[in-house]
């Protein structure tokens, strides 16, 4: 519309329309009530001014009116609540089969790592029309991943993973902002999300120099750090067999059950003593300070790939032990 004076953000994701729809409804309702109050004040102030209405008529109040202006706004609010929560639920639940991108935020840049091992700094390349799930963590202070054109925002915390997702619907380049204040160059922590046609995206993907997929990097680390000596792919290991663990419930020594998600794996690497799997001893040393955020993500990707490979294996011939995750 106005090239130099935009008054509304672009709509470039599947969710944007829903958010905008609710936003317009809120504006309409707000405008109605604001104008109502302004109009009433204006009319009363003019009509009952001292010079034409010298004697006030005393009115104590009115219960029906009080109930009306308590219950009607409450009812309207409940509509907003229901609609807003529906949108939030969708935002919080990434669809299955989404393409995963890992993001590390640090003062003051964004680092992205794709499943094929390719890396990006302050730029996120995604194909149009595909669900993209971001698994994010911070190396220092709290940051926030904010793409106004997609209507999504999620804080990026140190010490844990947070996730968000979007499905871009329009090819183009969009602002990526850090929206959680993070120090000196907070306003410089700006990147771009580049939405490309699938073909162009494939070309871009194959153009970059990458040293193996993320999961295969994780597999290498798994060997280097000596994880494999205990976490064997049979039942003889001193640590649990990690095949097919990801995404499944895990019974703990103290009787609790947790879902083995990204944060569980992260915690198990950094604070092994926090949640001991039932039947195992707390003998694993901590890797706190020994693995960087990127390496953690590679390890998580590897453990994930073990689950995916097993699913595939189970579907095909029910035999293979997944030792080559990059074959997926």
């Amino acid at each position: 519309m106005w090239k130099n004076l935009p008054l509304f953000p672009e709509r470039a994701s599947a969710l944007a329309w829903q958010v905008d729809g609710l936003y317009f409804l809120l504006i309409a309702v707000s405008a109605f009530f604001t104008l109502l109050i302004f109009a009433l004040i204006f009319v009363f102030a003019v009509k009952y001014r001292r010079s034409v209405h010298p004697h006030a008529v005393q009115i104590e109040g009115s219960l029906p009116l009080e109930l009306a202006w308590t219950l009607i706004p409450l009812g309207i609010c409940m509509i907003f609540f229901a609609w807003g929560s529906l949108i939030y639920f969708q935002e919080a639940r990434p669809p299955k089969g989404a393409m995963e991108v890992y993001a590390v935020a640090k003062q003051w840049m964004w680092k992205f790592e794709y499943e094929n091992g390719q890396r990006d700094i302050n730029q996120l390349h995604v194909p149009v029309g595909r669900d993209v799930k971001l698994i994010m963590s911070s190396q220092d202070a709290i940051h926030s991943f904010f793409v106004p054109a997609f209507r999504i925002k999620m804080d990026v915390l140190p010490g844990r993973f947070t996730t968000t997702w979007f499905r871009p619907t329009k090819v183009g380049t969009y602002h990526l902002f850090c929206s959680q204040y993070c120090g000196t160059d907070h306003s410089g922590m700006i990147g771009q999300v580049i939405v490309m046609e699938p073909a162009a995206y494939q070309a871009w993907m194959s153009g970059g120099a990458s040293s193996g997929t993320l999961a295969s990097n994780g597999q290498q680390l798994f060997q280097q750090l000596g994880c494999a000596t205990c976490h064997r792919f049979d039942t003889q290991g001193r640590g649990p067999n990690l095949t097919g663990v990801f995404g499944k419930p895990v019974l703990l020594e103290d009787g609790r059950t947790v879902i083995a998600d990204e944060n569980y794996i992260r915690e198990s690497i950094l604070i092994p003593g926090a949640k001991i799997v039932s039947g195992f001893k707390p003998i694993m040393p901590t890797f706190q300070g020994q693995v960087s955020e990127e390496n953690l993500m590679a390890l998580v990707a590897y453990v994930k790939s073990l689950a995916q490979a097993q699913q595939k294996g189970a579907a095909s011939d029910n035999s293979s032990v997944p030792d080559t995750p990059n074959s997926q």
Partner: peptide, 8 residues
């Protein structure tokens, strides 16, 4: 029984 989680 070594300390399971000295950080916490």
């Amino acid at each position: 029984h070594p300390a399971s989680d000295p950080q916490h």
